[in-house]
Nucleic acid binder design. Structure first.
Lengths: 192, 192
DNA sequence: CGAAAATTTGACATGACTCAACTGGAGTGG
DNA sequence: CCACTCCAGTTGAGTCATGTCAAATTTTCG
């Protein structure tokens, strides 16, 4: 059962008792997502906090010219949602789309709040999870404001070698904030 | 007493009972910081999670050429620390330096963990605080990878008008990831 | 007041984008 | 199995965004 992956995941951070595990199992719903399927589209309210069991998603915004800009990729054992839209129930500015056939576990806002209120371990778990993701974003910002596109690409390769293997370069270019053409030139440069 | 500011701050998110308030008061220490004084230097372990009562700080990294890159500014009613260094007790890669004479409240790791264990409301409060800061970073990344330097500057002006007034442009340029010279040209351009 | 830092400006160099054309797979349907 | 399309990737030429360095000027703060 895919819920077992989630239980194992939480146990990395803190032990769960029987009641916690039962609460988890009844709060999350498994869902299969096809390639190119959206779990969130712009202007919709983000109804779910999703945990990826397998597959891969991209979260992106679309600018005035219609160009996509990848905010993040999410693979197994990680979370994906639009926090603002999810908590404040406001229309999202983002898209979340499956890049590969995927399996996810989803929880609704009401159920998550219920977990937080009745099972305090989840306040702690999600605090820690968010802190770790916050740190990763800080590092990405530092890299964005302080290094060249080539260095950001090399950093991406060494930090996410698996993503680099699974994703088309076009998607990586969008994540790095450069054009696919320029990434192609960077790759040519690196080979030498 | 500066601790009252912190209590009022937490009450924005969730009510605090008497025990919570007592615990807060005994866990945090007030400290006056001079302009240009550091509360964290590279290679030191970050010993404190700090809440700013008044004044202003910059958090920055230094690259191989010795150039500073501002990761964030922190003013009254906000938190500043190096999370990785603080929790994992590893040497920091960052500096945190007062830009103005400042007053802060600091808590040590052991005391914060004590709060988390005995007063569950703080797990929740810090979860929510970190979630909000995470969202802000996401928006900054999207802006970094999808817009021009001029648009980022205009966005900074409208999002942080107070910071724009208090900070020298050099510091803002570093935050935006551009040179002071180029920011000067952008400003000239905007005036027209 | 005086030193140090911030800002501006000019000339030039380089990083990165745009557009258009071409190449080479990876499906898809016959 | 072939012909076809479609999309990712590459390449070239030209352009625009941004950086570098140096110098002059203004502002800030001790």
């Amino acid at each position: 059962m895919s819920i077992d992956y989630l239980i194992a995941y939480f146990k990395q951070f803190f032990p769960l008792n029987e009641a916690d595990i039962t609460a988890l199992s009844t709060s999350f719903t498994a869902r299969n997502i096809k390639r190119r399927q959206f779990i969130l589209q712009q202007d919709d309210v983000c109804k779910y906090y999703s945990f990826v069991i397998s597959g891969c998603f991209k979260t992106y915004g679309v600018d005035l010219k219609g160009a996509e800009h990848n905010l993040q990729f999410t693979i197994a054992n990680d979370w994906v949602t639009d926090l603002t839209s999810f908590y404040d129930e406001k229309p999202s500015k983002l898209y979340i789309e499956a890049i590969e056939p995927s399996v996810i576990l989803q929880i609704k806002k009401a159920d998550l709040l219920h977990l937080f209120i009745h099972y305090p371990t989840f306040d702690r778990n999600f605090r820690i999870i968010t802190e770790r993701k916050y740190i990763a974003l800080q590092e990405r910002i530092l890299s964005n404001i302080s290094t060249t596109a080539q260095d950001r690409y090399l950093g991406f390769l060494s930090q996410y070698p698996e993503l680099a293997r699974r994703l088309p370069n076009t998607q990586i270019a969008s994540y790095l904030g450069i054009t696919p053409e320029f990434l192609s030139r960077i790759r040519k440069q690196i080979i030498k």
